[in-house]
Design a protein around this nucleic acid. Sequence first.
DNA 1: TGCTCACTTGTTTTT
DNA 2: CAAGTGAGCA
Length: 766
Amino acid sequence: MAESSYLDELNESQRKAVLYNDGPMLVIAGAGSGKTRVLTYKIAYLLDHGYEPWSVLALTFTNKAAREMKERIARQVGIDRARYLWMGTFHSIFSRILRMEAEKIGFTSSFTIYDSADSKSLIDEIVREMELDIKDYRSNRVLSLISNAKNRLLSPEDYAKDKEQRRIDSSHSVPKVYEIYSQYCIRCHQRNVMDFDDLLVYTYQLFETHPEICDYYASYFRYILVDEYQDTNLVQHKLVLKLSSKHRHLCVVGDDAQSIYSFRGANIDFILSFARERNVRVFKLEQNYRSTQTIVNASNSLINKNENQIRKNVFSENDKGEPLSILRAFNDIDESEIVANTIIELHHKGYAYNDFAVLYRTNAQSTCFENTFRKKGVPYQIFGGTSFYQSKEIKNIIAYFRLVVNSDDDEAFRRIVNYPTRGIGDTTFVKLKNVAKQKNVSLWKILCGDLNEMKLTKTNITNLHRFRELIESFKRDLTVKDAEELGHDIICNSGIIGNLNRGLTPENLSQLAKIDNLLNDIKRFCEKKRNDGSSNIFLADYLMEAALLTDADRDDNDVPKVMLMTVHSAKGLEFSNVFVVGMEDGLFPDVTSEVEEERRLFYVAITRAETHCYLTYAKCRYRYGELIRCHPSPFLKEIDSCFRKGVIEEQVYNSGISQPHWGKDKELSLSGCSMFDGGEMPQEPHRFVAPRKLRKIDSSSVPASSSVGQMSGDSLEGKHIEHERFGRGVVEKVEGAGDNRKATVRFENAGVKQLLLKFARFKVCE
DNA sequence: TGCTCACTTGTTTTT
DNA sequence: CAAGTGAGCA
């Protein structure tokens, strides 16, 4: 009804892109040109013109983008219609479809999802079993080969037959990858698990082997929209083509200049060739509404250095703005201090902390900023890296969930069978594993079978039975209790909480806080689903979603905070003031990557900024625990000099060792460093690492300060004891519970010792 | 059985 | 400088 009102908010080219709906189309959207606006309005327009919400499929790059877009559409057309849109990432949409169709490809609907840590662990297991050299077949490397194969839709059989691939693998001394790949798929299938890539590959396979299902969805989705098309890979591309084959109402949006995921199989050619396709209408959005003219011009001057691109003329009619500031720091710590100080200064001038983002090339760079920001009291939030969902405690709890939902998930089994410790150690586990392997079934199936066949002690068997009973008690509630209740039960009854409650150490407190966070997360999930009209929300539902969540998806909008993240995760976001840090040769651009892609990445970084953009580099920085000498990034000079200000003088050191070097050849890199580092490089005092021995004495001889004795109800503290070997001493502290209870005792002659009460031989003196 | 200590090992980027 | 993996002691 308010159609004209929103169409009025669009410029000419945006409006054309919204109104054209007669066939496949491509929107080339320059940075900040309002493509999200086009997508939202287009969907709103479709809903106002006869499309039912559930017949519209919109694929986004992140969950957050999907959520925000949905909210914006809801504002246009009302939540009652917006909620039924199919909107989400490739992964989440297809996991939804796969859950409904799992049986058709030999999975069950309760399949669980492996993250890359799980995948790597499985690969390690296979490599060990095949008795291959773990040094050649590092899980990282193997996984990325497998992942690449999947993204190119190469099955294990295809891979084995691919002469070229096999030749390459052989020359890289990993000739058996094809066999690992094959085993890997078999195992995943056996365990009823899928990894991230599988979610796409199996959907594709499902459509291939069951044309009627493919037809069904292709008819069901009457209009398909895909955001960030420049970052799709082959599977995604083919899935989109399949799904849009019936109605041919397809709208893809992207910007070749922002293609930054080739390492994940994204291929810029899909968008380029799509543009050349007959019958495809191409629209260009070139007016940037986000940034100052200077920022837009600066980024244009940079990206023009790329050969391979669709030429476009991105312009801004905003304020002219200030030149990009280039700042030089002495080292990485100095860099973080400069950034912090600048932020504080601008904060005093009225910017909120969430008006700032610090963008870096690698996650490892965040630590320095964290420390400095904490020290200076600048509130910050880190995205990615060792995130909330990846922290051990959370992963372990999720592993409980997984094992309860899908008991064949051996990786989940492995993680928690002895967490918290319940007397099922390595030896027992290995026995279980061997039998499982021999019988070709999951660990859980063995656990449920006859344990007496194995050479296990009585206690072992009791412990195993107890574990089994624990998990089974949760399983009984899978479809009885909702996710919130069952999740709560699991956390409380699995022994994790009790384990943490035993001592109020800071670590335990932070873990408890994390667990609390997780519970809130589940609660929010349930509330959201209930709002969306679902009635039964089970743990399996939560799990499916949680597996695909990243911390960018967690809404944490309490206090304004400075955002710290990689350039990759900043894609699609915008900030008033952006600091692109670590602008050094070899770091950004990264040595191992393709220059044009790195340049696009830098382009993405700069174009996040609305008003101020700072580019910083350090003269030296710690890498690998070693101080290395750095040179400014060549990208800095590629920005036309009239759009930037500040230092990049820097004479070239031509000694044959041109780059900071952290390649394989250790000797070379050492000699490279010693040459530059010499003695003349002043170092921060706190960078000098205390000798190991000192540290050791520190931590073991000084008892931790917090000793809240009462809560354990223990009467041992302060008592004098006599130990079999160490003689007389005073108990300073007791912590832990059950078998893990230990006492810190200061002995008269033997110093301070920690005694495990289960083992220690002593008597209490009155 | 399990934790602590020492050692090796390695760094893009993410759903 | 991590984080993760393998040998001694309680």
